[in-house]
Amino acid sequence: MSLDIEEVIRIAHLARLGVDESEYPAYARNLSDILSFVEQLNAVDTDGVEPMAHPLEAKQRMRPDRVTEGDQRERFQRIAPKVENGLYLVPKVIE
């Protein structure tokens, strides 16, 4: 499997991840190497093998539906890059 630069740009967009243009060739090369390496998996016959979600087949635990935490907005927003009146600020989305 080999990824070209177009493909790297597409994936980086899906991940909303800035990649420097000068680094596209290096990423294309590294990612292709990793994917070729991973391709060994295709040689294995896994017909009828159930994908493994948990090693001990544990199920999600249920808990009573009751409030366990109070409002901690101020505490959480203290570490935010930009807030105003209890809201997280981002660049304008709607004109």
Binding site: L3, I11, Y27, I34, P51
Partner: peptide, 30 residues
């Protein structure tokens, strides 16, 4: 970190999920 985010995003992207993630989880059981 960027390499791994990109590989993961690719493996989970539409059309590739079964070939990569599902396959790996099957091998994991083996």
């Amino acid at each position: 970190v960027k390499r791994r985010i990109l590989i993961g995003t690719y493996a989970l992207s539409a059309g590739y999920y079964d070939a990569y993630y599902l396959k790996a989880q099957q091998v994991r059981r083996l």
